[in-house]
């Protein structure tokens, strides 16, 4: 079959906790190699949407597709677990609070999952760790423990850990929000580098400048809906929706 399909597709995503509707019928697509930023006020549902893509927060209704496969396929429990673990190996995720494994060294953080799931040898694992850590500029700290690293360094290791699984898609959940301002740039640089290598990325962020400079598309969400989307120059310079304008006005003021 040569039928073309979007690389990432979200169809009619809905999510509610009891009566609270966090996502109200969201549909969107992301092409291979595209870099998409999701912005919006807190509580807009942007993190929930991101976490639904790898089924960390399962949707109440709707479908998520990656490269022709449905991520949140409905299957009996045991089969579903196997399926989702395979899907998640293709979707890297980076968290606001890094979530590095504190009991493992930097090297072990990077190699644990590949060793366990891809059955690579210790030697291959070492090469992989060195490669990935070199990529994010953390090779020198390969045998350190996370507690010995700064926040920015931790996040770079967390990115290397995700990349070591050779994912098709990377999700960033406010990757720089928990960092001291002077440490933000080193993480942004790594993300820019990934962008230049045409990694497909979906980035939830508060940093409008970064979104404007790196992303191909910006999605503005509010109250569980996509309010506006388009290329950054359009969304940031000439937003058509009043809610977008209000958000940007407030946010740009806050930044100054």
């Amino acid at each position: 079959m040569t039928q073309t399909h979007p690389f990432v597709e979200i169809r009619h995503a809905q999510k509610s906790y009891g009566k609270l509707e966090v996502l109200k019928d969201i549909s969107l697509t992301v092409e291979r190699g595209q870099i998409v930023a999701i912005i919006g006020p807190s509580g807009s549902g942007k993190s929930t949407l991101l976490r639904a893509i790898n089924d960390l927060d399962p949707l109440t209704a709707g479908e998520v597709w990656l490269d022709g496969l449905q991520v949140n396929k409905s299957l009996p429990h045991r089969q579903y677990e196997k399926h989702i673990n395979e899907m998640r190996q293709q979707i890297g995720m980076v968290f606001q609070h890094f979530n590095l494994f504190p009991h493992l060294t930097v090297r072990e953080n990077v190699t644990m999952a590949p060793k366990l799931l891809k059955k690579i040898t210790d030697k291959e694992a070492d090469t992989l760790a060195e490669e990935q850590l070199d990529h994010v500029g953390m090779l020198e700290r390969i045998d350190y423990y996370p507690s010995q690293l700064s926040g920015g360094q931790k996040q770079r290791v967390a990115i290397a850990r995700a990349l070591a699984m050779k994912p098709k898609l990377m999700l960033f959940d406010e990757a720089t929000s928990a960092l001291d301002p002077e440490l933000v740039e080193e993480v942004n640089l790594v993300m820019k580098k990934l962008a230049e290598e045409h990694m497909t990325m979906i980035i939830v962020t508060h940093e409008m400048d970064f979104a404007a400079s790196v992303c191909d598309r910006v999605i503005f969400m509010d109250k569980g809906l996509v309010v506006e989307e388009g290329p950054p120059e359009l969304v940031f310079k000439n937003p058509t929706q009043e809610r977008t304008q209000a958000f940007l006005r407030k946010h740009l003021e806050g930044a100054k």
Binding site: F101, H103, A113
Partner: peptide, 29 residues
């Protein structure tokens, strides 16, 4: 921290693997 289990699961580890490799070693330590 709940994020530990989440991070392990997003890498593709099963629940059991995540428990035995990530949560239990930290708890024991």
């Amino acid at each position: 921290d709940k994020g530990q289990m989440e991070a392990a699961r997003t890498l593709g580890l099963s629940r059991r693997q995540a428990l035995m490799r990530v949560v239990v070693p930290q708890a024991v330590r």
